[in-house]
Nucleic acid binder design. Sequence first.
RNA 1: GGCCCCGUAGUUCAACGGAUAGAAUAGAAGUUUCCUAAACUUUAGAUACAGGUUCGAUUCCUGUCGGGGCUACCA
Length: 603
Amino acid sequence: MKTMTIERKIAHAVSEIIANETGQTLQENSIIIQKTRKDFEGDLTLVVFPFVKMLRRSPEQCAELIGTAVLQNVEEVDTFNVEKGFLNIVLKKSFWLDFLNNNVDNQCFGILKTQDRENTKPVVVEFSSPNTNKPLHLGHIRNNLLGFSVARILEAAGHRVEKVNLVNDRGIHICKSILAWIKYGAGETPENTGKKGDKLVGDYYVRFETELRKEVQALIESQGVKEDEARKNAPLMQEAQDLLRRWEERDPEVMEVWKKMNDWVYDGFDHTYEQMGISFDKIYFESDTYLLGRDIVIQGLANEQLVKKEDGSVWAVLSEYNLDDKLLLRADGTSVYMTQDIGTAQLRFDDYHPKQMIYVVGNEQNYHFDVLKKVLKKLDKPYHNIIHHLSYGMVELPAGRMKSREGTVVDADDLMDEMVERARKTTEELGKTEDFTSTEKEKLYHMIGLGALKYFILKVDPKKNMLFNPEESIDFNGNTGPFIQYTFARISSILRKAGEKRLRDATLELDAALLNNKEISLLKNIHSFANLLPEAAREHSPALIANYVYELCKEFNQFYHEYPVLNEPNGAISDFRLHLLKLIAHNIRNSMFLLGIDVPDRM
RNA sequence: GGCCCCGUAGUUCAACGGAUAGAAUAGAAGUUUCCUAAACUUUAGAUACAGGUUCGAUUCCUGUCGGGGCUACCA
């Protein structure tokens, strides 16, 4: 143990004094040390209530006793004060100065490197997982940003990470858009229409639904059947199902159209992913994996882990888990969604032998994943307990969830374009880019627009539903991405003005007594990042990082307003502040990197 | 019907069971001879309701009310 954190040192001292007093040993993780709240004097606070009974003293006496012991045994501690049942510990100013000293040249404070990559089992993070029958929308944006950011956070926390995408490129829904294109497409292509491939295919998916609804309506009126009955029997639906059968038989004619249309979609997706700034290490296609799932199920049946009903359909019996039985193969032998997921899980396990497989999938599929894990357990698969469903909340509109039928879907490309446009407009109104080249401008507007969007999405706790109001544009002021980018640009501007030589020659020989509260507060913030990052990794929560970096920037702006850096007459203080700014800048950049957001040197 | 999730300022979001529930935005009032005013300062405003557990509850438990999701031989 080379570097023990100050929190652990204190916790250790606390457990010792309690052991001395009572003869009881308590686990160090039962000692609650938190950051002291703003309104009180101190850096760290110990809640002493848990020890009151053991020590048989009043809370104040306990705090006094523990405080004295900590003061004696931990050299970094300067003083302490007792406020109700809370022991507030003040660290020496030199502790903070040393902290800066030790980390000013560390561009990656708090970031852990994966040791021995070759021999480390990876965490596989699956996200995005689009269907190839329609373009990406706002819901996918949350999924993509979340998955990408969580992958970066895990990596920064010392894990080896593999990002994978599972493209849902087969099934009845895909056949629907293919069929509509064959019937009504009149040879339209992305080239001859100028339309983005995924949009074009999506249009035909919508067209299918429109035409189907007409047929269903007609059936209901002429034969008086119920709607779901009519949907099943409608000629178009029959044709789509026929197309699916032909696809499963690898009918060359169908395969050709399928391939062609999927390629259009992939071109479209590539563009969307690029705009979003996300990428994958590997892409899986369900068309390659669904048969594997079927084989596993058949094997499971042979092993008597699954059961076959009279009609020939295959089921997992899950009554022992209080879940309904789950169908895995239809009577006609075709696969369902769950069957595919069994196959992809197996393949992923074989490919990576991961220590964990994370699936970034909306919370509407909570039940599905509960069942998946149980089915895999039933099948005796070793990986059933390394599956983690990173279940995130939906993005809702003021009127409720997005519905493609009602045309309320917020398109991913459109939204990103709007954000970039607004960044352009706002920046130009402020007249900040007059001396930028046009390339620099485009880059900046993209950075700001996407920064605003990403931060807006990621600052919300992933588990919770969130609201997006298309009427109100995403802000550039306040608790936003651009605010953080702006703060970074401000710091960069000072560092730029200082010049390389000045930065290189700057000394750190300040009398610690000269540190002011704002400076200590900033150092304290950054110091806490080392604890925050592992927590964000554990919780799979970019929101923790977002809130952290916002707090840091807010703090910096207050400092910036109150204290000069380059204009500070005391050279030692000025030098110190330059170092402080460097550390802050690195930390902001790193934090934003974890969110997948770039920061500009000027804006 | 059964199962699960969520109700915090006008609005959008915070708060390992810990101190006086934080921010942002919208509202009101201010700050540019000074390193970028996308900033800063001041001000007003909230835990759906009723019980319980606890030294202490926005947080855990029970009930009521309100919102959402799942419950397919769809994905």
